[in-house]
Design a protein around this nucleic acid. Structure first.
Lengths: 251, 251
DNA sequence: TATTGTTTCCGTATGGCCTACGGAAATGAG
DNA sequence: CTCATTTCCGTAGGCCATACGGAAACAATA
C-alpha cells in the first residue's frame, strides 16, 4: 500500500481532536460506549501487533466490542485516526534532557528512534503534512532550541533542522522496516536473506561487481552482531558525522 | 496504507524475472498478448500518474486491454510486480561519472533523487528487503566503489555505506512525499498548510514554544523560494555535512 | 409516567481490492 | 483432424472505507 495519508478533512475538527480541546460533557443524549482515547489506544495496539495494514476500522471496532460505524461518531475517518495515533506515540518521547546542544540533539534522536522501535508502523506514516499536535510540536521545539544554542545563524538553524529531522525519521524508519516486515509476513530478515542465497550462487557476477567483491574478500562483511546491531551502529555513526559536519561548518 | 511489501514468493522465480533470464520462446501453445516488460511499463505509468495506491492489478490490466487474471500468467503477484517496477526505475540512474570519491557519491545521490522525483511512488517501496536486480546492484557497486576510494578502512566503508544509503533514500523520500500527496489528493502543499492557518491562530502557544517563536521573529522562516526549493537545499546541505563528517573522521 | 429533543449506536449497501480455481480459446505438431 | 501445450479470463470469496438513515438510549420536561 501507499503511505498513509494524514487526514485531509476539516482542519478545525482534526486540531480539536489532536489537542483534545475539552468539551463540556453533553447533558442529554445516549451515553457513549467508547471514547476517542479508547479508540486511539486500541488502534495503536492493533498496529503494534499486526502492522498498519491490519489496522482497519472494522478491526479496531471489534477490539472494542462495538459496531464499526460507531467509530465514526468519535473520529472523522481513518486518516484522522492515524494522525491521532502518530501524535500520541510521539508524546512518549518525554524530552527533558540537559547538556550541550549536541547531547540534546542526540537525546532527541534516541528518543525518536525508541518510538519507531516501539511502534514500527510509524514507518508508514508520512511526516510531510504532519499532525500538528503536541507530540510533534514539542519535538520540533526541543530540536530547534538545541540547534539555536549551537551558535548557528537563525536561517541556518532551520536548514539544519530539516536535515536532522530528515535523517532521524529516515534512519529510524529504515531501521524498523525490517522488524515490521518480520512481524507482518512472519518471516525474519535472516530467513529472508537466507532464502536468497541463490542470488549469490547464480546471479552475482564477480567481474561486474569488483568493489563489492574486494570488500567481501577484505572481510568487511564478516560482522559479529546481528543485522539489527549493524543498523543501530550506522544510525549512530551517521548522526555523529552529520553533527560533525554541521559543527565544522560553523567555523 | 502500509509500505508495499516486496515479493515474498519463490526467490528463484523472482530473480529470474528481475534479471530477465532469457527463456527460449515456447514452440507450441497460444501466443501471449502481453509481455512482462509491457506489464511493468504499464504499471509504472499508472503509478507515476496516480500513485502506487491506484496501481491495482485490475487497473494495469485495463491499461493493457487484457483481463485482470491474465497478468498472473506472467507475474507471480502484486508484490513481485512492485519489485520489478522498483528495479526498473533504479536502472534509469545511468551512473557513469568520473571524479573524486565525493563527486561520485554526490552524483549517485543526485541521480537517485531524480528517480524519486520522476517516480514519487518509490517513497512507498521498502528498500530493506530490496529487489536484488541489476538496478539496485549497480547502484550499490557504484557507491561502494566511491567510498572504497576514499581511504576508509573496509569495515568503515560498509558502515558509511549504510549511513549514506539511508540518508539518500530517506531524504529523497521525504522530498517527494509532498508532490505525491499533492498528486494523489489533488491538494497542493501550500494549500494544505494554508488551510491550517487556524493552527497558528488558535493553538500555537508562544510561551510553550519560545525557540520557534524566537526563530520566527528573527526572520528565519522568511524564505524566498517554494517549499520544494527549501527541501532541495536541505537535501544538498545534509549530504554535504554528512560527507564532511565522514571525511573528517578519516584523519 | 409519557413525551420530546438530543446524542450515540450500528446494519445495510456500494464499490473497491487481491487472487485461487478451473474451464475456454488459441496454437503448432503429428 | 487430433491432441498436447500454453495463455486468457470469468467467477467467486473474503477483505477494505464509509454514506445513509433508522433504532436505541438518555435527560429534561410536562
Amino acid at each position: 500500500m501507499a503511505a498513509e495519508r494524514s487526514g485531509g478533512g476539516d482542519p478545525a475538527r482534526t486540531l480539536a481532536l489532536l489537542w483534545r480541546t475539552p468539551q463540556e460533557p453533553k447533558p442529554v443524549g445516549r451515553k457513549p460506549k467508547v471514547s476517542v482515547d479508547q479508540i486511539v489506544t486500541a488502534a495503536i495496539a492493533v498496529a503494534d501487533r499486526e502492522g498498519l495494514g491490519a489496522m482497519s476500522m472494522a478491526r479496531v471496532a471489534q477490539e472494542l466490542a462495538v459496531g464499526t460505524m460507531s467509530l465514526y461518531t468519535h473520529v472523522p475517518g481513518k486518516g484522522e485516526l492515524i494522525d491521532l495515533m502518530a501524535d500520541t506515540v510521539l508524546q512518549e518521547r518525554d524530552l527533558t534532557a540537559e547538556g550541550t546542544w549536541r547531547e540534546r540533539v542526540k537525546h532527541y534522536a534516541d528518543r525518536t528512534r525508541a518510538v519507531y522501535q516501539a511502534h514500527p508502523w510509524m514507518r508508514d506514516v508520512s511526516m510531510v503534512r504532519p499532525p500538528l499536535g503536541p507530540g510533534l510540536m514539542d519535538g520540533q521545539e526541543f530540536v530547534l532550541a538545541a540547534l539555536a544554542d549551537s551558535g548557528l545563524e537563525p536561517r541556518q538553524v532551520t536548514v539544519a533542522h530539516v536535515a536532522v529531522e530528515g535523517f532521524v525519521h529516515g534512519a529510524a524508519a529504515s531501521e524498523v522496516d525490517d522488524q515490521q516486515l518480520a512481524a507482518v509476513t512472519g518471516e525474519s530478515g535472516d530467513s529472508w536473506w537466507g532464502a536468497r542465497q541463490v542470488f549469490w550462487d547464480d546471479y552475482f557476477d564477480v567481474e561486474r561487481y569488483p568493489a563489492m567483491t574486494a570488500l567481501w574478500n577484505a572481510g568487511a562483511y564478516d560482522t559479529e552482531g546481528t543485522l539489527a546491531d549493524n543498523m543501530r551502529s550506522s544510525f549512530d555513526y551517521g548522526l555523529d558525522k552529520l553533527l560533525d559536519g554541521i559543527e565544522g561548518g560553523m567555523r
